[in-house]
Simulated scan of single mutants.
Amino acid sequence: MRYYFDIFDGDHWARDDMGVDCANDRGARHQAVLAITELARELLPHDGPEKELAIRVRLKEEVAFSVRLVFETSSGPALTDVSVLS
């Protein structure tokens, strides 16, 4: 089956018009998880507190499922007091 992987980079959706052949939903889920981890390597903020990434997996126009990653950081002494790093 041909699956399409639309990507949300935190601001915009990019529609996949090419797709990838996968044997079933399980194979497509595996591909989506691999893809979102690659996106995280590229797009997670180095100096920001949060980012949301998502992949919407479609069969033609029907959404089969989605994979979502939410990255958040919170304030703590290591971010505000440099003596903690010593």
Score class of each variant (00 low, 15 high):
Gly48Thr: 08
Thr73Cys: 13
Asn24Gly: 07
Ala32Asp: 00
Glu50Val: 04
Ser74Cys: 14
Ala28Val: 02
Asp21Cys: 04
Thr73Trp: 00
Glu50Lys: 12
Arg68Phe: 05
Ile36Thr: 05
Ser75Gln: 15
Gly48Phe: 10
Glu62Val: 05
Arg56Ile: 00
Ala32Ile: 02
Asp21Thr: 12
Asp6Ala: 00
Ala35His: 07
Lys60Thr: 06
Glu38Asn: 10
Leu79Trp: 13
Asn24Arg: 07
Ala23Asp: 13
Glu62Pro: 03
Leu34Asp: 12
Lys51Ile: 05
Gly19His: 02
Ala54Arg: 13
Leu43Val: 03
Arg29Phe: 09
Arg41Asn: 14
Ala28Ser: 06
Val20Trp: 03
Asp9Gly: 02
Phe5His: 01
Ser86Thr: 09
Ala23His: 09
Glu62His: 08
Leu39Tyr: 08
Arg2Val: 06
Asp81Tyr: 02
Thr73Leu: 13
Leu43Met: 15
Asp25Pro: 06
Val82Trp: 13
Lys51Asp: 00
Tyr4Leu: 02
Gly27Ile: 00
Ser83Pro: 02
Arg15Glu: 15
Arg29Thr: 03
Asp47Glu: 14
Phe65Trp: 00
Leu43Asp: 12
Leu44Trp: 03
Ser66Cys: 09
Phe5Pro: 01
Asn24Pro: 09
Asn24Gln: 07
Ser75Lys: 13
Leu39Pro: 05
Val20Met: 08
Leu69Lys: 06
Gly19Pro: 02
Thr37Cys: 13
Ser83Leu: 09
Thr37Gln: 15
Glu52Leu: 07
Asp16Ser: 08
Asp6Arg: 03
Pro45Ile: 09
Val70Gln: 11
Lys60Gln: 11
Asp17Pro: 03
Phe71Ile: 06
Arg29Pro: 02
Glu62Gln: 12
Asp47Phe: 11
Arg15Tyr: 10
Glu72Ile: 04
Val33Cys: 08
Asp6Met: 10
Leu69Cys: 04
Val70Leu: 12
Ala14Tyr: 10
Pro77Arg: 08
Gly27Gln: 13
Val67Ile: 05
Leu39Arg: 02
